[in-house]
């Protein structure tokens, strides 16, 4: 009896092994994606989109998440990925400087490294696909100047600028681009506050305190839609009407698009997550084969992009577009591609 069970067990195990080999045989190889966190809706969506894009390109994608932006955990995950000798590693770096040694180790082991969404500038990386957050800030700045001009006939007013966590280059680069534009408008008073850990109720508290002391504020610019949603809740609680204070946001989350439809947000500068993921997939075969991609303009998922050579390697820069009430339902926006 036990012999028969053992025979059946061995046969089942062999069948399982054969089927697994067959699955891997169809794949061009395993690619690891190292995500920085799971508490940012954009990163959660990015992980899903990147996995889909990589698997559509014929690879098997394994994703791991570095807790809540834990750089030492991400370095360990990088070492673990290297030990599996994958076809490539894609990383959205928790810290572009701190992961440099790990990236160099992977490349030294002959594994191509792709940087997704966040720049790694301290070492050579085989390929970057990034949003150009500074450009997002510049676009937001131009939109804010336009909206203030529409209100006053000239660019002036008071702006409450709510950054996310200052350790995240996403928000600091947006800030850099935004400030660069606003320098041209000395009549605009900008007060910058920080929502630590990108925590939404902090943004709500900041907005409530600021509006209590400065009720004549013209515009609020939170750097991400989930912060903007909390600010909208404060405006609603305080009895503001939709047009009393102009809201400009970044990222393009589903909740942000919903607030445009409801009339609370004037415009959002999108972080083109879906196009960034596709940008990686487009160049996987070439980079893994050791080919050098051609520099110049590209169209990625209908969004204009440019492949440029940077000191740290080739960078596909895809700048997000401005979403407003006229184009909010366009399926091109990642916020319309995820969710229910």
């Amino acid at each position: 009896m036990s012999k028969r069970f053992m025979t059946v067990g061995v046969v089942a195990l062999l069948l399982l092994l054969f089927s697994t080999s067959a699955i891997f045989a169809q794949s061009k190889g395993v690619i690891y994606y190292l995500s920085p966190n799971q508490f940012d809706e954009m990163q959660t969506a990015a992980t899903v989109m990147l996995k889909e894009a990589v698997e559509a390109a014929g690879y098997t994608c394994r994703t791991v998440t570095a807790g809540n932006e834990d750089v030492s955990l991400q370095l360990n995950q990088l070492d673990n990925a290297i030990s599996q000798n994958p076809a490539a590693i894609i990383i959205a770096a928790v810290d572009g400087v701190a992961v440099s040694d790990g990236v160099a180790r992977a490349r030294a082991a002959g594994i191509p490294v792709f940087s997704f969404n966040r720049v790694i500038s301290e070492t050579f990386v085989d390929f970057h696909s990034v949003a150009g957050c500074k450009m997002m800030g510049i676009r937001a700045g131009h939109e804010i100047a336009r909206l203030l001009e529409e209100k006053y006939g000239t660019v002036k007013g008071t702006v409450l600028d709510i950054m996310g966590d200052p350790s995240d280059s996403y928000t600091t680069l947006i800030e850099e681009g935004f400030r660069e534009v606003m320098e041209q408008y000395p009549e605009v008073i900008i007060e910058t506050k920080i929502a630590q850990a990108w925590e939404a109720s902090r943004a709500a508290d900041i907005a409530e305190d600021w509006l209590t002391a400065h009720p004549d504020t013209d515009l609020i610019f939170p750097h991400s839609d989930h912060l903007t949603a909390a600010v909208v809740a404060v405006l609603q609680n305080k009895g503001y009407e939709k047009d009393d204070i102009i809201l400009v946001s970044c990222t393009g989350m589903p909740m942000g698009l919903e607030l445009i439809r409801e009339g609370w947000i004037s415009c959002i500068v999108e972080e083109p997550v879906s196009a960034q993921a596709e940008g990686i997939a487009m160049f996987l075969d070439d980079i893994i084969a050791g080919n050098t991609p051609e520099l110049g303009p590209y169209l990625v998922k209908g969004i204009e992009a440019e492949l440029i050579e940077m000191p740290y390697g080739p960078e596909l820069r895809i700048t997000g577009n401005v979403i407003d009430i006229n184009n909010v339902d366009d399926p091109i926006w990642w916020g319309n591609q995820v969710g229910n």
Binding site: D40, E41, A197, W198, A200, S201, A204, A229, A230, V232
Partner: peptide, 17 residues
């Protein structure tokens, strides 16, 4: 109460408290 305050929720809500 936090959900009431923000009229919704986001994954990082309450982080650091």
């Amino acid at each position: 109460l936090l959900a009431a305050r923000t009229n919704g929720s986001s994954p990082s809500l309450g982080m650091g408290m």
